[in-house]
Amino acid sequence: MLSMQKVSFRYGKNTDYVLSGVDADFVPGKFYTVFGPSGSGKTTCLSLLGGLDTPTAGEVLLDGISLRQIGGEELRRKHVSYIFQNYMLFPYMSAVQNVVTAIEISGKGGREAKQEAEKVLLSLGIEEKDMYRKVRKLSGGQQQRVAIARSVATGSRYILADEPTGNLDKKNAQMIIDIFLRLVREQEKCLVVVTHSQQVRDASDIRYELTDGQLSLWGEAAEYAEF
């Protein structure tokens, strides 16, 4: 379980707190969405959960162990991976090379990494003829699927996504949502998606709303929690 315990964060000593005393748990097998107004700190949440930033106060824990102990790099190599709105792929590499790069960083390499990359890409609907094309020549939907493949191929349990459907049309967005649901249901992944999209929000299991630096459960989940 990935947890935030009384997490507060600000970007500089003389700046306002973006998050103040946030508590939240993210468990494998669930699809979470975090939404809120622009500038509310949604992305900061993702950054803290993946160890890219360190809380000013409070702790982020993985299975009860502080990320300060685990280390951000170790966390991202083995447990957490990111998906970005602008895909953040290496545009000059092929789809396979992009995925292999991530697998190599996680510790595997050679032919095994390549086979794994091809397998994952195929499972996400990237055809063989597209696997070895430079990713900049692929469509937005294909590029986002390559990005998902990159995060899945490393074997991370937690996938953190920042507006993953932000640049996609409704059809492609639905395709990505279906993939997310498959990952959660079939592979027990924990998916935390920061989004403005109603479509994504509706598909998620648990929704958090972030306002005034506070993260709170929203909708049925909130009612259930209150109950």
Partner: peptide
């Protein structure tokens, strides 16, 4: 940035 997000050591 991408490499660091993928877990590569700085």
């Amino acid at each position: 940035g991408i490499l660091i997000a993928l877990g590569e050591r700085r």
